[in-house]
């Protein structure tokens, strides 16, 4: 039985025996390589589920749709390991109760999809711990290394060029499962922190704030870069932040649901190399 068939029948069982009220998964998209999120409540509709190497979007953000989890019923959701980390972070930030989330875990390796054992987010903790070690050993992105070698003025010019294309559509925010604030700082107008006109200045400010708010929370799922209509390499900023919290505070976002948010906790012996 193909993995897709296997997951379809698992989803069907879950809906039939009433253990979940909805399955959030992937369906056919508008082109052969696109997948779109589908929300299934009828067991007969589980044939529409697709699971292949094109299922890259992190669906976890859909769990935060207002009222979805308010009735204490469970929802099953297709998640890659970074998706499971998202659930852990959202739980640690009190945005959802992980007990209401049934994980249909999978992992994409090249062109193939591998099934992952486990149904609760906590079942994946050993896997995530392994990924932390892997992330620590992973060298910085090639472009990051190139940027680090530039002079500050050259780096500024690089980002100025990138951000000048930003149209402030906030697709990066909409696509990010971590951007759950009811009122985003950028929508604030008293005080107006971020310049809202479509000039590079405000674009720079917005992208800095976005990256900072994701420091220690981003699971590097890639939803933001994928959503950006003008292809700003947002992942470079996020990765840089991830590397910073990993080296400075040994923090790997979403390790488990009891992990303290990195910027809402501290250690007295945190490093401080730059403070005069």
């Amino acid at each position: 039985m193909s993995i897709q068939q296997q997951y379809r029948s698992r989803a069907k069982e879950l809906l039939q025996d009433g253990s979940v009220k909805m399955v959030i998964g992937y369906g056919e998209g508008t082109t052969a390589t696109r997948r779109r999120p589908i929300f299934i409540t009828n067991p007969d509709d589980t044939d529409r589920l697709v699971l292949d190497a094109a299922c890259k979007t992190n669906l976890a953000g859909y769990l935060l749709r207002e009222g979805l989890l308010a009735d204490q019923k469970s929802v099953a959701i297709f998640l890659s390991p970074s998706g499971v980390r998202t659930i852990n972070i959202l739980a640690s930030e009190s945005q959802l109760s992980s007990a209401q989330v049934v994980v249909l875990g999978f992992q994409i390796q090249g062109d193939t999809v591998k099934a992952l054992e486990g149904t609760k987010a906590s079942d994946f903790s050993p896997l995530i711990a392994k990924r932390k070690e892997k992330r620590k050993a992973q060298p910085s992105h090639e472009m990051t290394r190139k940027l680090e070698q530039m002079t500050p003025a050259e780096r500024f010019a690089f980002w100025e060029g990138e951000f000048s294309r930003c149209i402030k559509c906030y697709a990066c925010r909409a696509a990010c499962p971590m951007c759950w604030c009811r009122r985003c700082v950028v929508d604030n107008n008293q005080p107006q922190w971020v310049n809202t006109s479509s000039h590079t200045l405000g674009n720079l400010e917005w992208n800095l704030v976005r990256a900072f708010h994701l420091a220690g929370r981003c699971v590097e799922c890639g939803n933001c870069s994928e959503a950006c209509p003008v292809n700003i390499p947002l992942h470079l900023l996020n990765r840089r932040m991830t590397e910073e919290v990993l080296t400075a505070f040994d923090h790997y976002p979403g390790a488990d649901e009891h992990q303290e948010p990195v910027l809402a906790s501290f250690r007295k012996d945190d490093p401080e190399t730059f403070i005069l």
């Binding site: 990051t144 780096r155 800095l208 900072f212 932040m241 919290v245 400075a248 505070f249 501290f266």
Partner: peptide, 23 residues
């Protein structure tokens, strides 16, 4: 412990400013 929280925040933000080319 206000300054301990601030220190973490600065560590992240300082790295971000550095990475975006603020001297």
């Amino acid at each position: 412990h206000g300054n301990y929280h601030a220190r973490r925040r600065w560590t992240a933000f300082n790295a971000l400013l550095h990475f975006t080319g603020v001297p």
